[in-house]
Structures are given as C-alpha cells and as structure tokens.
Amino acid sequence: MSDGFRSHPLVQLTLLRLREFLREPEAVFWALIFPILLAGGLGIAFRGEAPEVVRVAVTDDAIAATLRQDPVLDVVAMTPDEAARALRSGRILLVVEPGADGGAAYRYDDTNPEARAARAAANQALQVASGRVDPVRVDDVITRETGARYIDFLIPGLVGMGIMGNAIWGLGFSIVDARRRKLMKRIIATPMPRHLFLGSFLAWRVLLLPVEVGVPVLFGRVAFDVPVRGGMIDLALLAMLGSMTFSAIGLLIASRAKTIEAVSGLMNFVMMPMWILSGVFFSADRFPDAVQPLIRALPLSALIDAIRASMLQGITLVALWPQVLTMIAWLVVSFIAAMWLFRWR
C-alpha cells in the first residue's frame, strides 16, 4: 500500500470509521458476535430432529392400555386431579378421559397446534386399536430437506436484520456523535470534499459487509447445513444493495439530530415495526391480508424476502425485481431527503 493511497482523504476517513468501530469492543460484539449466539441458540431450540413422542395423560386404565400399543404416544396414567394440574401448567397438552357411551373424551386447548396434533395422534391410535379400517390406503414419504426447517428460515432473517441494524446504528451513532462533538464542523472547515465524508460511511459499511453477512451465513452452513442455493455472488449483491439502502435511511435519520438520545429514539421508531412485521423470526404471512401490501413495501421485508428466496430457493435476482426495486426506491428517496435535510454542524 503506497503512501499516496494512504494519504487519500477517503482512505483516511474510512480508516477513521474502521478504527472507531474496531476499537469499541461493544460495537464489535453486537454487530458480529451477537447474531451468531442468537442463531446458535435458536437453531438448537428449533432443531429439525425426528418428531418427539407425544405425551398424553390418561385417567382410565383401559384406555391407557389401548393407547400404549402405539409407539408414538407416551401414555402417563394420572388421576383426574393430577391431570388437570398438569394440563394447567403445560406439562402435558392432552388428557384422555372416559367419555359418554363407553367412549373417550379429549381435554385440550384447541388454539394450541401441538395440543391439536396430540389429539389427532391419540384419536388415530384409539380408533385403529378399536378396529377402524381406513378406506383409503396412504403411505408416508418422509423428506427432511434442508431449506424447509426453522433454522433455514431464520438465518436469512438474521442476515437481513443484521444488515439493517448495523447500517442504521452505525451511521446514526457515528454521525450524531461527530456532530455533537463538533468534529464534523471541524472537518468541514478543511478543504475535504463533503461527499467524501459521507462516502467514507458507505465504504466502511461495504468493507464490513463480508464479515457481517459471511459470519452468520457460514455459521448456518457449517452448524446447520443451511443452503445458499442462489450462490454467493447474488447474496453479496443483495447484501450490498440492502446495506446501501439502510445506510441511506440511517443518513436520513441522523440528518438533523443533535443528541444521541434523539437519534436513538428515531432509530428505534424506524426499526421496531420492521423487526416485527418484516418476517425476521416468523413469516410475515401471519399478518392480515389487508396490511400485506404495506408490509411488502418495507425495505427490510424486501431485503429478507429476497435473501430468503435466493438462499433457500435459488431464485435469480432478475426474478426478484419487485424486492430489488423496492430497495432501490427506498435508497434513492432516503438519500435525496437526507441530502436535503442534512445539518453539517
């Protein structure tokens, strides 16, 4: 690296950004280490192993004996009192009691999907043991494909959330801090071209991107075999576009704020809805149809949907044009608005 290169103002300004970041251990932790811990924790909690046996409480010996013939069920005999307590505390999800006409009754919470599954399994076992013959022959073909597990859903979500958080926090705090300390005013009192000051933030984000995106993706690949079907180049391009989009939004958020408190509030105000709505941890399809167009228009939804489609389904960038265009629109509008509003002192 020659001295001429090192003494370019953009290089020096980018070095300033990198040094301020790398010499702040907390910032490095939250940006790089925390996502791995989060992905690891959630990946372990929702690992895609063979379905566990279903625990059911049975208050009648005859029914218990019948149900025990099915290996899927873990039958626990309880008194009605014990069973009621266990149900309340969530230790078991289904109680099978003697019912009317010598039959059985199921006691469970029908809003809990796992309880409904337990009921179906118990009922199947009971009916078959009592002589039911299914009229249609069915065969189960089990596939455990990577790409359909929760961890596969989660890693792209975390990558998108990380890109958003690092860009918005990174720019928001650095810019407002420089303004508050009057460092920005001091720097614009020199011949430095102002666009280089802003450019150094982009350069800093892009330089850290391989680590910020690479670490969780690599972690997912190594620890959980999460696929990158669309290829690293497409993923890198999406990450770059996302990072620039959120940098522009960060620039806009920080364009006028004079205190860290003010900018923190604004950043949370902007990011909070996207954490919830944009499908980081669970699918945005769960929200009502009426708000779907709104959710799809959020920049984080666009980024995460695109990364997910690329990584898990291998869909090409061309086919992802709605998401790409959504991000470009946010990028352009935020950047122009930020330039319009930006306060240099």
Binding site: S7, Q12, L15, R19, E20, L183
Partner: peptide, 15 residues
Amino acid sequence: TQLAEKLTVLETLEL
C-alpha cells in the same frame, strides 16, 4: 472541538 477519542495523535494528524 472534541477530536475522535479512539484515534491516536499521529492518526488524527494523518487524517
């Protein structure tokens, strides 16, 4: 003016 605290003296002047 508060200069960047994380930089060294020489780095500040290089900037």
